[in-house]
Simulated assay, not measured.
Amino acid sequence: MKKAKKVLAMALVLTMTLSLVACGSNPAASTSVASSDPAVFSAPVEESTYPNDTISFIIPYAAGDGLDTSTRALLENAEFPVNTLVENISGGSGTIGLQDAFGREADGYTVAILSNGPTIAQPLLNDTLTYTLEDWEVLTFTTAPVLAVLGCSASKGIENSDDMKAFLESGEPFTVGVPSMSGFGYVAAASMFNQMGIMDKVTWVSYDGAPALYQAYLSGEIDFATFDDNFAAQYANSGNSVTVGVVMNDIRSQYFPDVAAAGEWGVEGLGANIGFKAAAVKKGTPADVCEYLTKKINAAVVTEGYQKWCEDNYFGVLTEEDIYTGEEAMEMLIQLRETNRTVLTAAGLLG
């Protein structure tokens, strides 16, 4: 079975299992801003019905976030006959950028890069948003899925999973930094803490994206931080200080094989909580335009250049066999939303 599909198929099974389980603050550190130096990837313009103008890729987080870096690498390996523009529009846990993208015409000249928080969790938590998951036409996934891990500050003296478990069971209060209050890292951590009965011991601190969170982690502002496992591995292998105490999933991370998964501690239902990155357009975009964009993006995903970038930067490589159709991707995201609904309810965030 295809590698990425095996991981995500596991999520479907675990979603069904989780649905049978009884469900049991600081402000954001950054405000909404648009990048003042967007990246433009130039190409000669050809006469055609579509495309005949610049295609904008909306990243709902600040420059340097995983969505941002992977999208820029993808576009550097894409072959569009027009210019492509990366716009970083951050704030609102990713919702500001997606609402901006959703407010534009459904003409194929705006492509939104979706991820867990602003696409799945936030519409569950915030009924004032102008969009839901069904309002997007998902084209394809742009990277392989990732897992959430809990990084430990050096001040806590935690060196391994046993130390991590002992601390969490000690009853001592602690702070946890997250890149957003609705991303899959937060959902995984909240579910784990809830099942361990220690939600009342945690103080959440939200930052505007992974780079800001990492700097706060290094400076000792917080006791723990939720990271994508691939980013934590990248930090660690570049010589920076990162200690991972637990993988917040049912399985261990390929990047931290010696670190225990929360499932090994008896924490259930985290297997379906997988991070994704997907390209999408507003519902109502012409079918031939969607087909064109999907073909171009998928072609870029499997280029040697992009695959090497993914490997070098700790993003799982997608092959042609790993690629989902838009329908398959949307079905998976609907299942992931139900997992998030159950987890957020268990964490006391939904009624």
Rank of each mutant, 00 (worst) to 15 (best):
11 A>Q: 00
12 L>T: 05
12 L>Q: 05
14 L>R: 08
16 M>Y: 11
26 N>L: 14
26 N>K: 12
30 S>R: 13
34 A>G: 04
39 A>G: 10
44 P>E: 14
46 E>F: 04
47 E>W: 05
48 S>Q: 13
49 T>K: 08
49 T>M: 11
49 T>D: 10
51 P>T: 02
53 D>T: 09
53 D>M: 08
53 D>C: 09
54 T>C: 05
58 I>Q: 02
68 D>Q: 13
69 T>V: 13
70 S>N: 09
89 I>N: 03
90 S>E: 10
93 S>M: 08
94 G>K: 02
99 Q>G: 14
100 D>A: 14
104 R>A: 09
109 Y>I: 05
118 P>I: 00
120 I>D: 01
123 P>K: 04
127 D>S: 15
131 Y>N: 03
134 E>A: 14
135 D>C: 08
139 L>P: 00
139 L>H: 00
141 F>T: 02
141 F>V: 03
142 T>P: 00
144 A>G: 15
159 E>L: 13
162 D>Y: 04
163 D>C: 11
171 G>I: 10
173 P>F: 01
174 F>I: 07
177 G>P: 01
180 S>I: 00
189 A>Y: 06
191 S>I: 04
192 M>P: 01
197 G>V: 03
199 M>Y: 02
200 D>R: 11
201 K>M: 14
206 S>R: 09
213 L>W: 10
220 G>M: 11
223 D>A: 07
229 D>I: 00
231 F>N: 04
232 A>F: 06
234 Q>N: 13
237 N>W: 14
239 G>H: 08
242 V>G: 05
245 G>T: 04
253 S>H: 06
256 F>E: 04
265 W>G: 01
266 G>Y: 09
279 A>G: 04
280 A>W: 02
282 K>M: 07
286 P>A: 11
287 A>S: 15
288 D>R: 02
291 E>K: 11
292 Y>C: 06
296 K>E: 15
307 Q>A: 13
308 K>H: 04
317 V>F: 02
321 E>D: 14
322 D>S: 09
326 G>D: 10
327 E>F: 05
330 M>S: 05
333 L>V: 09
333 L>W: 07
334 I>L: 13
336 L>V: 15
338 E>D: 13
338 E>I: 03
339 T>N: 06
346 A>M: 09
347 A>T: 03
348 G>N: 12
